[in-house]
Design a protein around this nucleic acid. Structure first.
Lengths: 130, 130
DNA sequence: GTTGTTAATAAAAATTATTATCAAAAAAAG
DNA sequence: CTTTTTTTGATAATAATTTTTATTAACAAC
């Protein structure tokens, strides 16, 4: 189990109920959209405002707690920031799977890489056999 | 110079003035947002509707003429579909540069890759020396 | 050329997404 | 405690996108 309170504090953010719960939703699903977070959380926290989620998502991205995953033709998803990895995005079921970034050592001279975003679109094992 | 009319027809789309000019904007800049296309084209075609651009961008993406480049924290840009390559996206000036996808041979078993999207965010040569 | 048919466009309306404002609540500091 | 700061929720405002409708363009058949 992840300690969201420490995670937030390490990144100079106060640990509010709203924030820890947003992180819990993100972590549980792995990757999730803002709308989905809202749908999930408003069951337990009916007064939660969508604006609060937007505000905190932006804040947590700026503070490096979470990362935006922009996806072709869809709404962005968010994930907890972690070690470098790639995304296998299924065009059929929409599921996103994380994989180690091995066998791929990109090194570009004359460009100072800050972070890599590698998304592979295709069909997951499950959807291939349909 | 690219023959946009043939390009459209090859992909089962009629070659209208609007479409060829959208493609011309995309090709001239390499990568461009919908808004930027609109700003550019409405100088010469003041009656052009933004909705027409949205519609045709979507259509041309679906028909494989162009490709969406979703970018973290920004609006998507579009490029003419071409051979596999990666993007070097400068966090400072926003410029996108294409590079050969060499030295990186990703092969994932149990996932059927349709296309790869590799974006490297960082600082371009120019912005490093500032 | 005119007509009919089809497809594409422009303009407008409707919808959806995102951001800003601000008073109230909560948390932190003194 | 009281004060100060921060966060939240509600709402309003703005921006982005999609849908609808009316008009126009293209073009084959007459």
């Amino acid at each position: 189990m992840v300690d969201y309170i420490s995670l937030l504090k390490q990144n100079n953010l106060k640990a509010t109920i709203q924030r820890t719960n947003i992180l819990k939703s993100i972590n549980r699903t792995g990757h999730i959209t803002i709308d989905e977070i809202y749908e999930e959380l408003k069951i337990d926290y009916p007064t939660l405002s969508l604006a609060t989620i937007y505000k905190n998502i932006l804040l947590m991205v700026q503070h490096g707690v979470i990362v935006e995953i922009p996806i072709s033709g869809e709404k962005s998803k968010y994930e907890i920031k972690k070690d470098e990895h790639i995304h296998l995005i299924c065009k059929s079921c929409g599921n996103i799977e994380d994989r180690e970034l091995s066998s791929c050592n990109i090194d570009i001279e004359d460009f100072n890489i800050i972070f890599k975003q590698i998304n592979l679109y295709g069909l997951c094992r499950n959807c291939q056999s349909k």
